[in-house]
Amino acid sequence: MIQEASAMGLLRTILIILLVYFGFKILARLFAPFLLRFVAKKAEQKFGEQFGGFKNQANQKQQQKQREGETVIDKMPNQNRKSNEKVGEYIDYEEID
């Protein structure tokens, strides 16, 4: 039993494909901003967990210890600075054109 394709069947199939295609385009335009916002928020959370987790804990502990208006020095400058005497003397010069 062989069925033959009719012009109406072909036209109906093409019409269904076009309706599905344009329907998908319209729905994608409506829901794409929500989907992208959701994906960006999830990526930000994962990034924060991986890289910011340790910093956030340290910053929270440090902020709890500090009082308002208090000055905190995180790193003291190296006090053992010596000028290097082996460099020689500095000679100021001018370029000649």
Rank of each mutant, 00 (worst) to 15 (best):
N56P: 06
L36Y: 08
G53D: 00
N84K: 12
K86E: 13
L10S: 02
V39I: 15
I96E: 03
A5L: 10
L36S: 08
K86C: 06
L11N: 08
A5E: 10
L18I: 02
D74T: 05
A40K: 15
F54N: 05
Q57W: 03
D74A: 10
A32I: 11
E49F: 01
Q63L: 10
I26W: 12
Q45P: 06
S83L: 14
L18M: 13
L11H: 04
I91K: 14
D97F: 14
L36G: 11
L19D: 12
Q3E: 01
F38G: 12
G88K: 06
E44F: 01
I16M: 09
Q45E: 01
E70N: 05
P77D: 02
E89T: 13
E44K: 00
L11D: 02
K75P: 13
T71C: 03
D92P: 14
A28D: 11
P33V: 14
A58S: 03
F31K: 11
V87Q: 01
Q66Y: 13
Q63G: 07
L19C: 14
Q3T: 09
I91V: 10
L36D: 09
K82N: 12
L18D: 08
Q79N: 15
S83W: 12
F24R: 02
A43M: 05
Y90M: 00
V20I: 12
E70F: 00
M1Q: 14
R81W: 12
M8F: 14
K75N: 14
S83F: 11
P33L: 14
V87N: 13
E4D: 11
V87C: 03
R29C: 13
E44D: 03
L15A: 12
E49T: 04
G69K: 00
P33R: 09
L30F: 15
Q3D: 10
M8T: 08
F47D: 02
F38R: 00
A5H: 00
Q66M: 07
V72L: 04
N80M: 02
N80Y: 00
E70K: 03
I26R: 05
Q63E: 09
A58W: 15
